[in-house]
Amino acid sequence: MARYGMALDYKNCINCKACETACKEENGILMGADKHRIWVGTGEIEGQYPLLDLTSNVFHPSQCQHCDNAPCEEVCPTQATYTDENGVVRVNIDQCILCSYCMNACPYDARYVDDRTMTVDKCNFCAETRLARGETTTACQNTCPTKVRIFGDLDDPNSEISEVLRTREHYSLKAHLGTKPKLFYLT
C-alpha cells in the first residue's frame, strides 16, 4: 500500500526521449504517432536569430498525472477507470466500453486508444510490469540520462520524493482544475 507519485526535475530534461522508448518497450505499447503514454513537449522558439529567447525553449516531460481527484475516473460509466491501492489511476480493459468519455475529461491529453484491445490506455506507473514484479522504479525514471524523475511513495515521509517535495519548490499542471495531480514539477 503506497501512494505513488512522481517529481520531475524537468529543467534537467534534454528531450532525448529515452523515457518514451523505455515506456514503449517495457509496457509493450504500440508504435504510432498518437500511441504514447508519455511524451516530452517543446515550445516553438521565440525571437529572431541570433537573438533567441532561451527560456522559450523548455523541454516539458509529461504523462498521466495520476490525479488524486481524477476526472477520468469520475466520468467512467463502468468504473473501468479506477484508482488502485497504490494511488495509481488505472484502466481495467475488461470493463472499458470505449465510450471515450475519459479521453475528453482528462485535462492533460494523457489517454489514448490501444488499437489491439480497442480500450483506453494510459500511463499506469508500470503497475502491470515493474511494480507487479516488486520493483520500485518505473521504466521512464530508471532510464533517464539526466535523472529527471523521482518516483516514490508520497505517504512515506522518508521517501526521496517526499523529501524533495518538502525541500524544493514545485508546481503541478492545471492545478486550478482541482484535479490534484501526483506529478510534481520541480523548479
Partner: peptide, 24 residues
Amino acid sequence: TKLNPNPMFPKSKNMLCARGNAGI
C-alpha cells in the same frame, strides 16, 4: 523483452538513451 540500464558502470551512470532502449 527489455533493455534496462545497468547501474554498476561508472561510465554510463545508470542510463540508457532512446537508442539504447531501441536496441531490441
